[in-house]
Amino acid sequence: MDAILLQILNGLDKGSAYALIALGLTLIFGTLGVVNFAHGALFMIGAFCAVTVQRIFNISFETIDPSQKDFLGNPLKVKTTYLEHWFGPEMGGSIIDWSVPLAILFAIPVMVAVGFIMERGLIKHFYKRPHADQILVTFGLAIVLQEIIKYFYGANPIPTGAPEVFRGSFDFGVLIGFDPNAIIYPYWRLVYFGFAALIISSVFAFLQFTTFGMVVRAGMADRETVGLLGININKRFTIMFGIAAAVAGLAGVMYAPINSPNYHMGMDFLVLSFVVVVVGGMGSLPGAVLAGFLLGVLESFASMNEIKSILPGIDQIIIYVVAIIILLTRPRGLMGRKGVMEE
């Protein structure tokens, strides 16, 4: 029992990332009808927002401290970050420590702006072109974005730590009545799951309970009629693109402490999140979220030693196997709507 619970918990953090990216992909697909291969790159840019904020916070100046000597006997040069200088060591230190959560504030405007520029500058021109062209141009864009990041940040992964309080693990099993040490779970993964749940529910609430969301949903169902009612649906869809970009970016920011950001992390996640979208059903938001968590948990079950000893290598391919089975037996995916992307 505890082993099963542990695998479910382990699957949740990856599942959250899949769900968030797939949610953004589905938002874009459902509203604009565009297959966005550059969505993984948005996730990556989000992760590099965290890196950037961490670097900005660590900008420092050097002072000479005559009271301390280095090993040659010269006065020691001490590096002080500006934040510590301005807010005092205590406050400044904790701001630096919390750089990843604070990066969220930085990432939202950046990602929305990136999303707007992408939609207005490029994707707008591809609504009428075939899906193959959309895939190709966004694939090209993904290469370009990833190479730009590589140019500025280098090819190596950049470790980006979580705040001190969330480092380390805790004994989750004891809380719910299992033996000590049965379920050890890192804090940050729990934070990530909570964060993902928050983002997902706010996106759903936004679409369900606001007038804006209602119009967008109406536009997803029947774009032409909404346009005939005198509503500028394109403008709203552009805003939805920005929101989708921000969702992917935030998923990336919070993922930075779990997996040190590198320039090709977007491509790695992209393939999987497309699979997630297809399993969930093209254009179905709840389907994307459900499939994201489901596949994340399945993947972590498949990597259990007991299962690997029966079916070696299953952990590497389980997601693809599931996707192939679903695509062939339930062409619409788990919760796909009728009439969306059917040949």
Partner: peptide
């Protein structure tokens, strides 16, 4: 080829990634 359009692209992608992962690990 039971599916076409983007589904075909994703199926081939899935198969290729599967072969790649298997070549790296079990095979």
């Amino acid at each position: 080829l039971r599916r076409s359009g983007i589904y075909f692209s994703i199926l081939t992608l899935a198969f290729a990634q599967m072969s790649f992962n298997l070549a790296y690990s079990v095979l």
